[in-house]
Simulated scan of single mutants.
Amino acid sequence: MSDAVAWVEARFAGAIVAAILGLLLANVVSRAFGRPLIWTDELAVYLMVLGAFAGASLGLARRQHIAVTLISDAMGERISTALSRVVDTILLGLFALLAWMLWNWFDPLGVLSAESLQAYSRESFNFLYQEPTTTLGVRKVWFWLILPVFCLTGLVHVFARFGAVSERAQ
């Protein structure tokens, strides 16, 4: 499952990079003709955020994040495997914390039980679902949804690594 998710993330991140390039190129051309597309910069920034989270999750799947491996490289395979297990356990804890924070921030039960989004925002002072982007006029929540997706895909990759370590140990 982790490999399938990583495949989708790689395609998604590549499409995001292509879209950003297209947006910035369109902005340069439109400015050259004196008719700038002011919304392209904002959309490019939001797309960079989406691409960064997809790439971060992909990096977890492939173990391609920056790491200091001086100690684990000097130790034997057993100790190196144990250190990898410790790192994965810490990652699991961090993703669990992120999931808890996102649950509180998005507050799906509170939103569903409210009579309207306006009433929910007024009562909770949580304007996540109401706040629009500056130039696009789109609600920011559509871009913030990458956070729960990142949390879920990151958990999939970490759990897959636990399974891979268990299989190697047998």
Rank of each mutant, 00 (worst) to 15 (best):
S2I: 02
F143V: 00
L25A: 15
N27G: 13
R161G: 04
L102P: 06
V111C: 09
V87P: 03
I66F: 10
E123S: 13
W100M: 08
F159R: 11
E167D: 07
T133Q: 08
L112W: 12
E77L: 09
V141I: 15
R11F: 07
N126E: 05
A10Y: 09
A169R: 08
E167F: 06
I90P: 02
R35G: 04
D41Q: 10
D3K: 07
L117D: 03
G76D: 09
G154D: 02
D107H: 01
E42A: 05
S166N: 08
P148C: 01
Q130G: 04
A19W: 11
I66D: 09
P108N: 00
M1I: 05
A4L: 09
P36E: 07
R168I: 00
S121A: 15
V86W: 13
T69I: 05
I90L: 15
A32S: 12
R63F: 10
S121G: 14
A56E: 08
A19Q: 14
W39G: 05
F150Y: 14
L128V: 00
F150D: 02
R63H: 07
G22L: 13
W39M: 10
G59E: 11
L60P: 00
A32L: 14
G34V: 04
E131Q: 14
V17H: 08
R63P: 01
Q130S: 15
D88S: 13
L92D: 08
L58T: 00
V49F: 12
L98S: 10
M48F: 15
L92H: 03
L58R: 02
A96G: 01
I38W: 12
R63V: 07
I20R: 15
